[in-house]
Amino acid sequence: MRTAGDLDLVRDFLNTLDERRFTRHGQEHSATDELVSGEALSAWWREHDLAGSAPDGAEPDAAELGAVLRLRTALREALLGAGPAAGQDALAGFPVRLAPDGSGRLRLAAATGSPGLDVLVETVATAVASGRWSRLKLCAAPECRWAFHDTSRSGAGRWCSMQVCGNRHKTAAYRRRATA
């Protein structure tokens, strides 16, 4: 089973909701949501080496799926920076505590009732505590909002892809200046 700490895991989790809606090379991209059922969540847990809540292999129930979707929504709202309390109420349902890790150290631990969800919450909490959370962003293009891990030296990346969203934005800005 995967342990907390991989910010790319949180990026992949956020991108289970694909809000992109644009045309590229004549192809219309439609928004999709990977996590529409307990079966889909179970498949995502397995794909990312995360255990679900049921030790007997049963599918996640509606409560677990609802908690997962609330966390995803709250994290996306927080990344959009929709005010100082963005996602605060939704995130309040995912508390973390200090717990011994067995080697005399302490770690941040969640107790959501779902081991997979615990790993996601612990990863976010660890990233926030270490300052790495600021490197996880949503694309600045309103028609995209794809989550990406900003690996630029300055940490000032705005686009999920400079070749797609960044280029589209810069081309539109150039055209506006040229017609003005």
Rank of each mutant, 00 (worst) to 15 (best):
L7M: 03
G93E: 02
A129Q: 10
E64Q: 14
R72G: 06
R176N: 03
D8H: 15
S53Q: 09
V36H: 12
C160I: 07
Q88M: 14
A63I: 03
G157E: 07
T123R: 05
S130N: 09
D101N: 15
V164S: 12
H169M: 12
G52V: 10
L98P: 02
W45P: 04
D61P: 04
A92W: 13
C160T: 04
R21D: 07
S152D: 08
D18S: 07
R158G: 07
L7R: 01
S53R: 11
D101A: 13
G166W: 05
A109I: 03
S152N: 09
C165V: 04
D8Y: 10
G38T: 06
V68Y: 06
A40C: 04
Y174E: 05
K170H: 13
M162C: 01
A147C: 05
N15M: 10
N15T: 12
A173Y: 04
T73D: 11
G166N: 02
A156R: 15
G81Q: 00
C139Q: 07
P115V: 05
R2Y: 03
L9A: 10
P55G: 05
L50F: 08
A74N: 02
R21W: 05
L71T: 00
N167M: 05
R46A: 13
E19H: 09
L50H: 02
E59G: 09
W133C: 06
G166Q: 06
A51C: 09
D150W: 03
A85K: 14
S103P: 13
W159Y: 12
D56L: 04
V36Y: 05
R135H: 11
S152I: 08
T32A: 11
L120P: 10
G104L: 08
G81R: 06
D56S: 06
R46L: 13
T123D: 02
A92G: 15
E39M: 14
L41T: 03
G38W: 01
V124F: 05
R105P: 04
G52R: 13
F148K: 10
G38L: 09
E19N: 06
W146P: 00
D61S: 02
A67I: 01
D101P: 10
L79C: 08
L117D: 06
D101Q: 10
R145E: 11
D49C: 04
L136D: 12
H25D: 15
R46E: 14
D101C: 12
L35E: 00
A99E: 14
S114H: 03
A180I: 00
V164Q: 09
R177H: 04
R145K: 14
S152C: 12
D33E: 15
L69K: 13
P84S: 13
G116W: 13
S134Q: 15
A141R: 13
A180H: 11
A51H: 01
R20C: 10
G83D: 01
A90T: 10
D18N: 11
E77R: 15
L7S: 06
L71P: 06
L17G: 05
S53E: 12
R177N: 03
L75I: 07
A4G: 02
S103G: 14
T32P: 08
